[in-house]
């Protein structure tokens, strides 16, 4: 664990808590994209299935439980408790245009299968590489679901950014949420540089997805720093 990864996790936690408190305190989810929150809940669910099978550290387990709990609590508040304040008319990004391609890509590009092996699996030729069957264990499933969650997380914020561009403005608290959410993966990029030089750790899938994810926030970061820092509303 290095300082960049720790501050990255704390920034992520701050974002999740800020959003949850904003909705809970104001009893409103105006300006919040429910679709992005569903996608984040899906990201955490598919990434943290290993909670059931492996123990890494108390910190790791605690944070995973908090992330999953807050994600589902946020989705509950948006679609159930404060449903009347959900702005569905502006939350129109087609999330299926994200989930389907990401799902396909996670099968084709992951740490377990090359595309050729994948075809063999599909044709069920190579028995031991079967995804889930008597001859395999669930590690392949977990690996593909982890890859799916990495790819999905990199684009999960798009419905939210799309909604803000449609409404033309965002509450200041929502911009703080987005700032910390974008900052977290930017800090993870520095963490991966650090781990590459000091631990020889290198995970191309996470790095490429993390770069894409951070690039999506660049436009917002510029607006955030030039506008919100001077405590103006964020006109786009």
């Amino acid at each position: 664990m290095n300082i960049f990864r720790l501050t990255g996790d704390l920034s992520h936690l701050a974002a999740i808590i800020i959003l949850l408190l904003k909705i809970w305190k104001t009893r409103s989810c105006a300006g919040i994209s429910g679709k992005s929150q569903i996608l984040f809940a899906l990201v955490f669910t598919t990434r943290y299935l290993d909670l059931l099978t492996s123990y890494i550290s108390l910190y790791n387990t605690f944070m995973k439980v908090v992330y999953i709990g807050c994600a589902y609590a946020t989705v509950y508040l948006i679609y159930m408790k404060f449903k009347a304040t959900y702005d569905g008319n502006h939350d129109t990004f087609r999330a299926e245009f994200l989930v389907v391609p990401v799902g396909g890509l996670s099968f084709l590009v992951n740490h377990d299968f090359t595309p050729l092996e994948f075809l063999l699996v599909i044709m069920y030729v190579s028995y031991d590489m079967a995804l889930c069957g008597p001859g395999s264990n669930c590690s392949h499933c977990f690996q593909i679901l982890w890859t799916f969650s990495i790819y999905l997380e990199s684009v999960a914020i798009l419905p939210q950014l799309f909604m803000i561009s449609k409404t033309g403005e965002a509450e200041t608290i929502t911009t703080h949420y987005l700032f910390f959410l974008g900052l977290y993966r930017a800090l993870y990029l520095i963490n991966w540089i650090w781990r590459f030089y000091f631990e020889g750790f290198f995970d191309l899938i996470a790095i490429v997805a993390g770069v894409v994810q951070t690039i999506l926030y660049c436009d917002f970061f510029y607006l955030y720093v030039t506008k919100v820092v001077y405590s103006e509303r964020l006109p786009l």
């Binding site: 990434r47 290993d50 944070m63 992330y67 740490h111 377990d112 031991d128 995970d203």
Partner: peptide, 10 residues
Amino acid sequence: DEETKEHDEL
């Protein structure tokens, strides 16, 4: 079949 990667990051 290489040991499936364990992911220690969140």
